[in-house]
Lab assay of single mutants.
Amino acid sequence: ETQAGIKEEIRRQEFLLNSLHRDLQGGIKDLSKEERLWEVQRILTALKRKLR
C-alpha cells in the first residue's frame, strides 16, 4: 500500500461518510446506514493511522 493509494482510499471513504451523514440528516432512521457510518469511520481512522 502506497501513500498515494492510502490517500485515495481516504478520499473515497470520506466521500461515503459525507453521503451517509447527508442521508441520515434527512431525518430517516436507518439502522443499517448508521452501522455503515460507524464502520466507515473506523476504516478512516485506521487509514489515517497508516499515514503517520
Results as ranks from 00 to 15, higher is better:
Glu1Val: 09
Glu1Ala: 11
Glu1Phe: 11
Glu1Tyr: 09
Thr2Ser: 07
Thr2Met: 10
Thr2Tyr: 11
Gln3Tyr: 13
Gln3Trp: 12
Gln3Gly: 05
Ala4Pro: 05
Ala4Gly: 04
Ala4Tyr: 07
Ala4Ile: 15
Gly5Phe: 14
Gly5Ser: 12
Gly5Met: 14
Gly5Ile: 12
Gly5Leu: 13
Gly5Lys: 14
Gly5Trp: 15
Ile6Asn: 01
Ile6Pro: 00
Ile6Asp: 01
Ile6Arg: 01
Lys7Met: 14
Lys7Cys: 10
Lys7Gly: 02
Lys7Ser: 05
Glu8Ile: 05
Glu8Ala: 14
Glu8Ser: 08
Glu8Gln: 08
Glu8Lys: 09
Glu8Phe: 03
Glu9Met: 09
Glu9Phe: 05
Glu9Cys: 08
Glu9Tyr: 03
Glu9Ala: 10
Ile10Met: 02
Ile10Arg: 01
Ile10Leu: 02
Ile10Trp: 01
Ile10Ala: 00
Ile10Phe: 01
Ile10Ser: 00
Arg11Asn: 04
Arg11Asp: 03
Arg11Phe: 04
Arg11Pro: 01
Arg11Lys: 10
Arg11Val: 06
Arg12His: 05
Arg12Ser: 04
Gln13Gly: 03
Glu14Lys: 05
Glu14Pro: 00
Glu14Phe: 04
Phe15Asn: 15
Phe15Ala: 15
Phe15Ile: 15
Phe15Lys: 14
Leu16Thr: 02
Leu16Met: 03
Leu16Val: 06
Leu16Ala: 02
Leu16Ser: 01
Leu17Tyr: 10
Leu17Gly: 01
Leu17Trp: 09
Leu17Lys: 04
Leu17Asn: 01
Leu17Glu: 05
Leu17Ala: 05
Leu17Arg: 05
Asn18Lys: 11
Asn18Phe: 11
Asn18Met: 14
Asn18Thr: 08
Asn18Gln: 15
Asn18Ser: 08
Ser19Arg: 13
Ser19Gly: 05
Ser19Ile: 10
Ser19Thr: 10
Ser19Asn: 07
Ser19His: 05
Ser19Phe: 07
Ser19Asp: 06
Ser19Val: 10
Leu20His: 00
Leu20Asn: 00
Leu20Ala: 01
Leu20Phe: 02
His21Pro: 01
His21Glu: 12
His21Trp: 14
His21Phe: 13
His21Leu: 15
His21Gly: 05
Arg22His: 10
Arg22Thr: 09
Arg22Gln: 11
Asp23Cys: 12
Asp23His: 05
Asp23Trp: 06
Asp23Tyr: 06
Asp23Ser: 07
Asp23Lys: 04
Asp23Ile: 06
Leu24Val: 04
Leu24Phe: 04
Leu24Trp: 04
Leu24Asp: 03
Gln25Ala: 13
Gln25Arg: 10
Gln25Lys: 10
Gln25Trp: 07
Gln25Gly: 05
Gln25Tyr: 07
Gly26Ser: 14
Gly26Tyr: 09
Gly26Lys: 07
Gly26Ile: 11
Gly26Pro: 04
Gly27Lys: 02
Gly27Gln: 06
Gly27Tyr: 03
Lys29Tyr: 09
Lys29Gln: 12
Lys29Pro: 09
Lys29Asn: 11
Lys29Ser: 07
Lys29Leu: 11
Lys29Val: 12
Asp30Gly: 03
Asp30Gln: 03
Asp30Asn: 06
Asp30Cys: 04
Asp30Trp: 02
Asp30Ser: 03
Asp30Thr: 03
Leu31Met: 08
Leu31Asn: 09
Leu31Tyr: 09
Ser32Met: 12
Ser32Leu: 13
Ser32Arg: 13
Ser32Tyr: 12
Lys33Arg: 11
Lys33Gln: 07
Lys33Thr: 12
Lys33Asp: 08
Lys33Val: 12
Lys33Phe: 09
Lys33Ile: 15
Lys33Tyr: 10
Glu34Asp: 04
Glu34Ser: 11
Glu34Leu: 15
Glu35Asp: 06
Glu35Ser: 09
Glu35Met: 13
Glu35Val: 09
Glu35Trp: 10
Glu35His: 10
Glu35Cys: 08
Arg36His: 07
Arg36Pro: 01
Leu37Pro: 00
Leu37His: 05
Leu37Arg: 03
Leu37Ile: 15
Trp38Val: 12
Trp38Pro: 01
Glu39Asp: 05
Glu39Cys: 05
Glu39Leu: 04
Glu39Gln: 08
Val40Pro: 00
Val40Asp: 00
Val40His: 03
Val40Ser: 02
Val40Glu: 02
Gln41Trp: 15
Gln41Arg: 10
Gln41Glu: 10
Gln41Asn: 05
Gln41Tyr: 12
Gln41Leu: 15
Gln41Val: 14
Arg42Tyr: 04
Arg42Lys: 08
Arg42Ala: 12
Arg42Leu: 08
Arg42Met: 11
Arg42Pro: 00
Arg42Phe: 04
Arg42Cys: 07
Arg42Val: 07
Ile43His: 08
Ile43Thr: 10
Ile43Tyr: 10
Ile43Glu: 07
Leu44Ala: 00
Leu44Gly: 00
Leu44Lys: 00
Leu44Trp: 01
Leu44Thr: 00
Thr45Gln: 10
Thr45Phe: 09
Thr45His: 10
Thr45Ser: 11
Ala46Asn: 07
Ala46Trp: 07
Ala46Lys: 07
Ala46Ile: 12
Ala46Thr: 08
Leu47Lys: 00
Leu47Val: 01
Leu47Gln: 00
Lys48Gln: 06
Lys48Trp: 11
Lys48Ser: 01
Lys48Glu: 02
Lys48Ala: 03
Lys48His: 09
Lys48Tyr: 15
Lys48Gly: 02
Arg49Lys: 14
Arg49Leu: 11
Arg49Asp: 15
Lys50Gly: 02
Lys50Arg: 04
Lys50Ile: 15
Lys50Tyr: 04
Lys50Ser: 08
Leu51Ala: 02
Leu51Lys: 01
Arg52Trp: 14
Arg52Gln: 15
Arg52Asp: 15
Arg52Cys: 15
Arg52Ala: 14
Arg52Glu: 15
